[in-house]
Design a protein around this nucleic acid. Structure first.
Length: 432
RNA sequence: GUCCGGAUAGUGUAGCGGCCUAUCAUGAGGGCCUGUCGAGCCCCCGACCCGGGUUCAAAUCCCGGUCCGGACGCCA
């Protein structure tokens, strides 16, 4: 390929050597006798300096005729220069236009003029060129990488389960229907049932990072119709055990981002505070008390409202778990306590701003599971493919699902979940 | 889905009955300038979401639509 270096790989010590950089014409500053071309590539900016007196006329004409955001390859000599950003500049031998940009641009990439999120999402390819947006997605990559590293070390095996499914699975959320040849099918809301099958399959510990689809018509800054879920399931562990794995994962991810993502955090102008272990555990009953103390009405057995979540979040002030939920507001696969079946071994992991994850020890008895499905008003025969796995040796197991976008947005203090998804899908947006 | 707010050059905004031939920034086009780094200076270009109504007069007020933002609900 033509590129020899990224902008950040060039140092003043390389003075005199010849390099080729490839990138976008970020800015062209023509001062008359001297012209600066700022080339931006994935990693940063490089200054190309053209002295009118000594530069090849053709090269100068190309640079002067360049439109902002055109793609160029610049071959030139590195010159150590204290006056230049990064301590070096490039004196070009040749400048080639590889992709001309039209003008005017649909949005500004230099940070001089803001753009609404809606405008930015319409031209996400151009929004990606801004340092702040780029930083978010570089961090997103670090998060995904850290999750895989951590879970791999904990003995989890990565799996991928189908997204096109035959039946509405867990109840609760609405599903997107679709046509599968001559049959009706749905986009899966969660890998829950499949990862449980893997427990019967003897994989012991599995995880999946993949899309989940929810057909809810919600319209908020923390919901998406297509999101990425980090899902785990582990045999021979109870809900307490997988909560420990979850909180350790969160801290591992934060630490990794703080350590390897310093540059991106700096771009976003933030300092990352790594949460302390262990996270606080409060019971659902205690959560209800906090809500009642604040004056909000809540019945035992109600799910927490947004207001309640905020109240509790403010009271606790850091990551926390809510445990021992009423059985009736948790899915059928959450295991009720033997001695007190109205509550179950389910937990939610909360950030002060919102819920990040929910999990539970699962029902692994075939008979109990079947009756739980029916109690929740679902049709057990529709779960045949799932229930079968509980009849031939299913170990006790537990697991959780963690929303990747919520993890990132709460970590980075980002207000709108759409900021952390390249091409978000919400009630209105289907393109790009 | 309910409630509240909004829609003005490519982008982000000011104006909220007549002072609007619509503000400012950025940008585009032209010019000057040898150290810019959000370069500077001069000239110039470009906009009131759609439909109806009120009024002597509407960007501005009213009604409907569309789109956008926020809160809540649903949901994770």
């Amino acid at each position: 390929m033509i590129r020899t270096h990224y902008s950040t790989q060039i140092t003043p010590e390389m003075d005199g050597s010849s390099v080729t950089i490839c990138g976008w014409a970020h800015e062209i500053r023509d001062l008359g006798g001297i012209t600066f071309l700022i080339v931006r590539d994935r990693e940063g900016l490089a200054q190309v300096t053209l002295f009118k007196k000594t530069i090849d006329k053709n090269v100068l004409d190309i640079v002067r005729g360049l439109s902002r955001e055109s793609v160029v390859a610049v071959t030139g000599q590195v010159k150590k220069e204290a006056k230049a950003p990064n301590g070096y500049e490039l004196v070009p031998m040749s400048v080639t236009v590889l992709g001309k940009a039209e003008s005017p641009l649909p949005m500004d990439t230099t940070g001089k003029v803001d753009a609404d999120l809606d405008t930015r999402l319409d031209v996400r390819f151009m929004d990606m060129r801004r340092p702040g947006t780029k930083a978010i997605f570089r961090i997103r990559h670090l998060v995904l990488k850290s999750v895989r590293e951590f879970l791999d070390r904990e003995g989890f095996i990565e799996i991928i389960t189908p997204k096109i499914v035959a039946t509405a699975t867990e109840g609760g959320t609405a599903l997107f229907p679709m046509t599968y040849f001559e049959r009706e099918a749905f986009l899966n809301q969660s890998p829950q049932l499949f990862k449980q099958l893997m427990m019967s399959g003897g994989f012991d510990r599995v995880f999946e990072i993949g899309p989940i689809f929810r057909a809810e018509e919600h319209d908020t800054r923390k919901h998406l119709n297509e999101a990425i879920s980090i899902d785990t399931e582990a045999s021979f562990l109870d809900h307490e055990d997988v909560m420990v794995i979850l909180e350790n994962l969160i801290v591992y991810v934060y630490s990794n981002v703080a350590e390897r993502g310093t540059e991106y955090l700096k771009t976003l102008g933030m300092e990352l505070k790594i949460p302390d272990l262990p996270f606080k555990r409060i019971t659902y009953d205690e959560a209800v008390d906090i809500v009642r103390d604040s004056g909000e009405q809540i019945e035992w057995g109600d799910d927490l409202t947004t207001e309640s979540e905020h109240t509790i979040g403010k009271t606790i002030g850091e990551h926390y778990f809510i445990v021992d939920w009423p059985t009736k507001i948790k899915p059928f696969y959450a295991l009720p306590y033997e001695n007190k079946p109205e509550i179950c071994r389910a937990f939610d992991l909360m950030h002060p701003r919102m819920e990040l994850s929910s999990g539970a020890q699962r029902v692994h008895s075939y008979e109990l599971l079947r009756s739980r499905i029916e109690e929740q008003g679902l049709y057990a025969d529709g779960f045949d493919f799932y229930l079968k796995a509980f009849r031939y040796g299913m170990p006790p197991h537990s697991g959780w699902g963690l929303g990747l976008e919520r993890l990132i947005m709460t970590m980075l203090g980002i207000e709108n979940i759409r900021e952390v998804v390249l091409f978000p899908r919400d009630r209105r947006r289907l393109s790009p």
